[in-house]
Design a protein around this nucleic acid. Structure first.
Lengths: 223, 223
DNA sequence: ACAATAGTGTCTGTGAGACAGTATCGA
DNA sequence: TCGATACTGTCTCACAGACACTATTGT
């Protein structure tokens, strides 16, 4: 960036695309919108917004999340920047992808401009099918899915997919969904014990032993 | 990115900045250039190039690496995209940072346009000093340093900092530099044994037992 | 022989994985 | 009492950490 003879370089549009994951019916879902304009009119796509000339990436992400879900303060992190030339058939757009995680209970829908509808799509079904998304968004979802599984193994990121108070069987289920395999209760508990704190609350009404609610106390280091 | 009313959004410049790490004299070094134009004339900065309107990010990175070092085919990976509004005092620039790793023996310098000189800066000394770089480049270097240490722990990325043939004491030394601590020979060898292959070559000329040269055979998974 | 560094054998502790057992609810 | 799920105790095994020992060179 030391080269300031920018005059010979044409400027381009920069957008942020949002991969919003949540858990619904014990499945990993991603929020997609149905486009109501060309290109890809009628197709599903990841929601996104253009970055304003006086707007930070962070501000654009918050704006995008709010436009689509009406939410503030949900967890997100930058994922990757996609810069292929022909991503968009009409013009050059650099897309900075952000991954957001939100528990279903907090998630609300809110169709934005030029959007027919907002829906949750089953991620595994989508990836293993030949269904497509607009632009290169399928590739982006696949990458995000991979990253999420990866970070599940060595960070606390999974906590963002459950509510503030959660039971261990509940949390374990989310881990199992993200990792794609069953875990042993006893081992799982030992693993997360130093990151959570008991509450006084228990589940009730089920025809079996109640489960205690916990809250998170701190983050693991690393990434 | 579904919102195509881009007309109301001013376009901006996109650049790639390069954090090129290497090992010199048993220290981690980063390649910086001395600027020969405003802003920050005379200051050190990370080398970078603007992304052409018909150029992928990848192509821009390769071009930038080649301009500064004359090299092709060195290892690099996308690091993070910095999008603060006032990164540059003159105009809005989105910077996509890439981290490159290269063994010193392959590294050549080559001052590009608008550049007084190219040099290797000691990373630890720099970070713990109050020395500055142009723009937000100090922050970028710090982040890259952190990421490199992190990936050293759970990937094979370190192999990119040694030549094709290397001895284990040599490789271990690089790990120690990146991790900032001494390692035990025996344990280190066990750890890397399944990623390397013996060659028939040995060091010679030293007043002690010779060391065998190895080559890498495969990458670990993960990230 | 000695200094210096390369390379190995092995003990220990920690933590993941596996599995069997006990606890507590509604019906 | 029974079915169902929550929760715990404990064995094993792999692996990282620690350290002492042996090996091979030039001087």
């Amino acid at each position: 960036m030391q080269d300031y003879d920018a005059s010979i370089y044409e400027k381009m549009s920069v957008a942020v695309d949002l991969i919003t994951f949540t858990i619904e019916d014990d499945r990993l879902k991603v929020l997609v919108i149905n486009r109501e304009e060309e290109p890809f009119d009628g197709m599903n796509a990841l929601p996104g917004v253009f970055v304003g000339i006086d707007e930070t990436l962070d501000a654009a992400v918050k704006r995008g999340i709010n436009e689509e879900t009406g939410l503030k303060d949900i967890y997100y992190e930058q994922l990757y920047t996609f810069g292929d030339v022909d991503r968009d058939p009409r013009m050059r757009i650099i897309s900075v992808a952000y991954m957001a995680l939100v528990p279903l209970e907090k998630l609300k829908f809110k169709a934005g401009k030029r959007t027919r509808s907002v829906m949750l799509m089953d991620v595994e079904d989508f990836i293993s099918s030949d269904e497509e998304l607009a632009f290169d968004h399928k590739k982006i979802v696949e990458y995000a899915r991979w990253r999420l599984a990866n970070k599940t193994m060595y960070t606390d990121i999974t906590f963002h997919l459950v509510e503030d108070k959660f039971t261990l069987p509940e949390l374990q289920k989310v881990y199992e969904i993200l990792l794609g395999k069953k875990l042993y209760k006893a081992n799982f508990r030992k693993k997360v014990m130093d990151m959570i704190e008991e509450t006084e609350f228990m589940t009730s009404g089920d025809a079996h032993r109640p489960s205690r609610y916990y809250t998170r106390i701190k983050e693991k280091p690393v990434k």
